[in-house]
Simulated assay, not measured.
Amino acid sequence: MLLDVARARGVERLTGGHAVTPEDLEAAEELAGTRVRAGDVALVRTGQVQVYLAGDKHGYGYPSPGLSVRTSEWFHARDVAAVANDTLTFEVFPPEIENLWLPVHALDLVEMGMLQGQNWNLEELSTACGEVNRYAFLLSAMPEPFVGATGTPVAPVAVL
């Protein structure tokens, strides 16, 4: 499911440093007209990848909107299988808790075992979902078969 937080907030792109909250995710659910359920993959659109697509590679990184530490509990309560977004850092940067480096990564990956993805270009998907007013779809995102890696690229395909 696409949780188009930027569209739900009425903007093209969230500002750098915006911490996406459970309330933002619920507003995106309301926009979608459905609710994230157990086993779903949640794609969270902030619009941040637009900076990169416009050619500003340095501006794409920092500051960055991203997931708040509060979202981990929200995803856990819904038993989400995986979450991905369109930012370099995945979580809000600068960090919302001083001197705590990548806490959302630790909560999602280590404590919950939930897969996560970063740097997804969700712009065309956002446009397509908005045109048909449907934000749920079949997603295929098979990882490359790297051995001994901690991460791998995927080639995601959404079928509306």
Rank of each mutant, 00 (worst) to 15 (best):
V83S: 06
R7N: 01
T150L: 13
P145F: 00
H76C: 05
V5I: 12
T21C: 03
A42S: 01
T21E: 07
V92S: 10
V5M: 05
T15N: 11
G148V: 05
E123K: 08
Q50T: 15
V80S: 01
R7P: 00
F137S: 15
D40F: 03
T127I: 15
W74H: 03
P156K: 08
F75W: 06
V44R: 06
A28C: 11
A19C: 14
L88R: 12
Q118M: 11
Q116M: 11
D4H: 13
V132H: 05
S64N: 08
V51H: 02
S68A: 05
A141R: 11
E12W: 07
E111Q: 13
M114S: 02
D56E: 08
V80C: 02
V49C: 04
P94D: 10
A27K: 15
A84E: 00
V154N: 10
L25M: 14
A155T: 10
E30I: 09
D4N: 15
S140H: 10
W120A: 15
V20F: 01
E124N: 15
P94C: 13
P143I: 02
P95I: 12
V83E: 00
F75M: 05
V154W: 05
F75N: 05
A8P: 02
V20S: 02
S64Q: 06
G55L: 09
G16M: 10
L2I: 11
P153E: 04
Y62E: 05
D79G: 03
E124R: 15
